[in-house]
């Protein structure tokens, strides 16, 4: 029953969602679709609570057992509940200036900082990966050089042919490859979704096979 009930619920909800997404006409289709959308949002919010309870349990256990680095668990719990208390009792809605300041002055710059480190990783990965080891690696290297030059004004300054070649790579071999991957991945995604829907794939139950 522990396994069958979630699978049955998932199957029924999934089928209703598929039908109301693909079909239109009667008013009930629209109503059911909208209602299920709200349920999805509510279920998502409820899932956050599941996460909060689980984190409290795990970190609480670490603190009471004085496990290695237990003091970091205190930091994690203080941050989690601190933000929660601020949001529910002080800020109350997402337009609160406190929230906005917190997000735009702390979270956003930190995110931008980590994101911008990517440029360094791109440089070191390119330096390490683009070696003329064999014919395939050489093709990869030549395409990379053309793209790097062709997508910046420097390429056109060297030769007007470079941007044209870069556009060709982007529009022909790239699109062909991307479409192949996208079509294959789409079928893989649909098949995985169906396996979950009919209960063949149960990994999301956390290994309760």
């Amino acid at each position: 029953m522990k396994k069958e009930l979630p699978i049955a619920l998932g199957l029924v909800a999934g089928l209703i969602w598929i039908i109301t997404t693909y079909f239109t006409g009667p008013r009930w289709v629209e109503t059911v679709h909208q209602e299920l959308s709200k349920w999805y949002q509510l279920a998502g919010a409820y899932m956050v609570m599941v996460g909060v309870v689980n984190l409290t349990r795990v970190h609480g256990h670490r603190i009471t057992q004085k496990k290695k680095d237990w003091m970091y668990s205190i930091v994690a719990l203080v941050c989690m509940f601190g933000i929660m208390i601020f949001g529910i009792f002080i800020a109350k809605d997402s337009n609160n200036p406190g929230w906005k300041t917190f997000y735009s002055q702390i979270i956003a710059p930190m995110n931008a900082t980590v994101y911008s480190t990517l440029v360094f990783y791109i440089a070191s990965a390119a330096y390490r990966a683009f070696r003329i080891r064999n014919s395939q690696a050489t093709i990869l290297l030549v395409s990379a050089l053309i793209m790097m030059l062709g997508r910046v004004p420097l390429g056109a300054m060297i030769s007007p042919v470079i941007p044209q070649l870069a556009d060709w790579i982007l529009n022909v071999p790239n699109v062909a490859g991307m479409r192949g991957i996208q079509i294959g991945a789409a079928f893989g995604g649909i098949a995985t979704a169906l396996r979950v829907l009919v209960g063949i794939e149960r990994g999301y139950m956390g290994g309760t096979e």
Binding site: V119, Y127, R128, F130, R131, V152, L154
Partner: peptide
Amino acid sequence: SFAHALIILFIILGN
């Protein structure tokens, strides 16, 4: 443009 040029330079050196 210059960042790409530098990366290309390193790729050439690496090769």
